[in-house]
Amino acid sequence: MFQASSILGYLPDYVAGALLTVELGLVSTGLGVLLGLVLALARRSRYRVLSWPTYAYIEFFRTTPPLVQIVWLYYGLPLLLGFDLGAFGAAAVALGLNIAAFLAEIFRAGIAGVDRTQWQAAQVLGLGFWDTLRFVILPQAVRNVLPPIGTTIIYLIKDTALASAIGTPELLRVGQLVANETFRPAEALTVVAVMYFVLTYPIALGFTAIERRLSAARA
């Protein structure tokens, strides 16, 4: 029988795990958005010294499993460089580097989707490259690609569960521990699923709301 009551006592542990999941999500999203933007610009650069390494980076991080990337950073970095990020740090950085590759492609598509004439109009007005990017191109690029950005961030929140593999006590890890203690894996992990939903659904709603507001402003 499905018995949720048997694990209700663990709720504070779940909440602590969820908070860590949120922290992981925030740190890696922040890193991913910033790095993704830089990569998107470098990828578009006419200088091959910039565009080629960026291409290699993006394809490498898109095509290898994020779990392996986390393990590399957690176990590999101390061995290679004598540099230990800790479990949380390794997971946050690895996920940030991973999502940056996906976001870079999304941003690139968004920037490419802005008509060339917008660059020209800005240029004739005397706006420099960075001002044009910041005030003319990116605002339009981002609204072109809001739905895939939202989806990518939701994926990332769920991918933070991979940090459990290196012992970060985030939400999934808490669920696993509770399952082991109570011998009730179905219930323990169902609570995990509900909590992921509670974390991610507002993101989906938020992105939809932003989209609706922006398109209302434009119509």
Binding site: A121, A122, D131, P139, R143, A217
Partner: peptide, 23 residues
């Protein structure tokens, strides 16, 4: 330009003021 090329995400006023403010 033939196709106006206004900045679609900015109000008419902001279209006019952007370059004077930034440049």
């Amino acid at each position: 330009f033939q196709s106006y090329n206004l900045f679609p995400h900015l109000s008419v006023l902001d279209n006019v003021t952007l370059a004077p403010r930034r440049v």
